[in-house]
Nucleic acid binder design. Sequence first.
DNA 1: ACCCCTATGTTTAGCCT
DNA 2: CAGGCTAAACATAGGGG
Lengths: 204, 204
Amino acid sequence: MSSSSQASSRKGKGRQKVAMEKIGNEKNLQVTFSKRHSGLLKKASELCTLTGAEVGMIFFSPSGKPFAFGHPDVNTVADRFLTGNTRVLNHSEKVVQVYRSEKIIQQNLELTINEDVIEAEKRRQEELEEKKKGSQYSFPRPIEELSYEELVQLRESYAKFIQDVAVETEKHKSGLVSPHLHGTKPDSGGGKDFSFAAGASSSK
Amino acid sequence: MSSSSQASSRKGKGRQKVAMEKIGNEKNLQVTFSKRHSGLLKKASELCTLTGAEVGMIFFSPSGKPFAFGHPDVNTVADRFLTGNTRVLNHSEKVVQVYRSEKIIQQNLELTINEDVIEAEKRRQEELEEKKKGSQYSFPRPIEELSYEELVQLRESYAKFIQDVAVETEKHKSGLVSPHLHGTKPDSGGGKDFSFAAGASSSK
DNA sequence: ACCCCTATGTTTAGCCT
DNA sequence: CAGGCTAAACATAGGGG
């Protein structure tokens, strides 16, 4: 619009290579997050559909807004963890003392629900329906029947991860020392909702 | 090369469109999972790097093997949840009772560490090192200093997710009824490591 | 199982509406 | 600020080692 006699080439410039580092431009960063986060959800969704894998994930936008996604269906996955059927390990079955258990759980309760997740879920459904095979799936108990509180309970008792050990192991194997970290400052973009008790990392 | 009889074209067939449904061929399914799961990790990794988002995710391979990935750096993220700095929500701050707290935590303790996570982490590091900016990151406490037990504690107190509410909300908004679900039945692929106590769902 | 290869489907950066 | 467009970058199915 403004002009500049640019030879009428209105075609987009197409995808350009972007450096793998934190995006400086705030606006651009937002757009990127917006686009990529949905891509991530889609990928997860596809992985589930294609391979039948179960996926659960949460992520915080640069602004601090939490997102969550989980696959098969809440009841199943949640239960999977609830019942501790995570038995795959035969690694070192060290007995560990419960660490802050209750406290942690109580503190981590509230998580904002994101529209994106819903959108992703919707897409999955549409895909299924498109294939007219939605009827073969049954539910032990439809989520709709759960009360809000029950949902919260489910949520709260969902997955628990780690990666600490991964890094640890990584060291063991590669002999590396610094466990990565990046410009993921608490309020990097402009989030002011987080306090981040850790004074760690510093930035870029 | 060995056989040139084929009109001298031994070029790969290139990517073919694949139906979005559970792959039947077991071998193919495994390969696909193998490829896609790393892609998923990469995407997550990039999202972290580019937008500074924090990502935590776990997923089970069709065989039941658990995978986990988390971003910024364990201490920070773990702390984020540990200290309950998940405060972003201002949604409905319903008070929920602790559900199985200790029990859950104790049961979900052991999780197999996957090479993939390590690999992903390694990649992130390499990227950083490639940019020669690895030295600017400091750690309040290097993971290497943590004992195995401490790692386990960290791990166990890591993230907790959900999506239940997401689905719930989805209903509210779209009026949809069945919360998706796919050929991800507990023993769909051939996992025999899991028992899946399903059906229990936490109805209070 | 993992890596390599290639062709091609898919994602997405930049720009516009 | 969400939606659309384009074209380049990227992920990955299929196949071989």
